[in-house]
């Protein structure tokens, strides 16, 4: 099993040449109330890159994002953020107390002032311009998430952190949202950290995948097609899922034989060169 004392961190090298590193986690662990929520997490996010964190429920995906943002202080390891980094955070849930009368407009300007025109433009971009004068507690979950994304974009962040942004959206809504995320990435030239359950979308739409297992440890990370071949990923999500994802691998890498995926152990991953190996073999 895992022995933290013997764990040595693989050197984490930025993969996009010439792009500055926005934030980096090195061997980060967070312990709360006697329990490790995450442990030995390495992660690099560069400008212009969409990095997604996947893993089962309770694996510490949100905690990883919170560590990166500085909301949670790490118990071990280090968190680096580029000096002067502007972040935009869209939490998974936001519950506004009914006793607080708050219009969407007010919510948009919660932490900083913006011109009304800017606010409306941001809301319009997310397709929720009609909500500008609605009370926040009357919004649906999907509307509120879009409003929160608009709020994050208003800040023109260098790093955009989205916690489960597709929750509660239908398939076409998801596709639109991912397209929007890519557009925002290009327009703002920012890095995006995306937390998601949705393997298909993650594999198809993101540049780097960080896979966390149920014990809060890093299982593997790298470009989607590499991660999809990784034994740890297969253990975590099962063969069936992996086979279903073969489609994306084919798209990206027609030479590879999807049937051979199960045989790829850590050794095979090492061969691939790009996937980063984490945790113990087995």
């Amino acid at each position: 099993m895992h022995d933290p004392a013997s764990h040595s961190h693989a050197p984490i090298a930025p993969v996009l040449a010439g792009q500055p590193v926005l934030a980096r986690l090195e061997g980060v662990g967070i312990r709360r109330a006697g329990r490790w929520l995450i442990r030995d997490i390495d992660l690099v996010i560069q400008r212009g890159e969409i990095v997604s964190v996947i893993g089962p429920n309770g694996a510490g995906k949100t905690t990883t994002a919170r560590a990166l943002l500085g909301i949670e202080a790490p118990t071990q390891g280090t968190v680096h953020r580029a000096p002067g980094l502007t972040t935009g955070y869209v939490p998974q849930l936001l519950s506004v107390d009914r006793t607080l009368p708050l219009r969407v407009r007010h919510l948009m300007e919660l932490t900083a002032r913006f011109a009304a025109r800017e606010v409306e433009e941001a809301l319009g971009l997310l397709g929720v311009a009609h909500c500008a004068d609605s009370q926040v507690h009357t919004l649906s979950g999907g509307e509120l998430r879009r409003v929160m994304m608009a709020r994050a974009l208003l800040r023109r962040p260098d790093l955009l952190v989205l916690d489960e942004p597709t929750q509660g959206l239908d398939v076409s809504g998801e596709v639109d949202l991912y397209e929007l995320i890519r557009t925002m990435r290009d327009r703002l030239d920012c890095g995006v950290l995306l937390i998601s359950h949705d393997l298909h979308m993650v594999m198809a739409q993101t540049d780097q995948v960080v896979c966390v297992n149920a014990t809060g440890h890093l299982c593997c990370s790298g470009p989607p097609r590499m991660v999809a071949d990784h034994q740890g990923f297969l253990n975590l999500f099962g063969r069936r899922t992996a086979d279903a994802l073969a489609f994306y691998r084919h798209q990206h890498d027609p030479v590879r034989d999807p049937a051979g995926a199960a045989a790829h152990g850590p050794a095979a991953a090492g061969q691939a060169g790009e996937v980063r190996e984490h945790g113990r073999a087995g």
Binding site: I71, T111, V161
Partner: peptide
């Protein structure tokens, strides 16, 4: 006012901005 209101809505929004 602004910070207190933001903290009332969700303290993490402030913390994420380094406050």
């Amino acid at each position: 006012w602004r910070r207190l209101l933001a903290d009332t809505v969700d303290p993490d929004l402030l913390r994420a901005e380094g406050v």
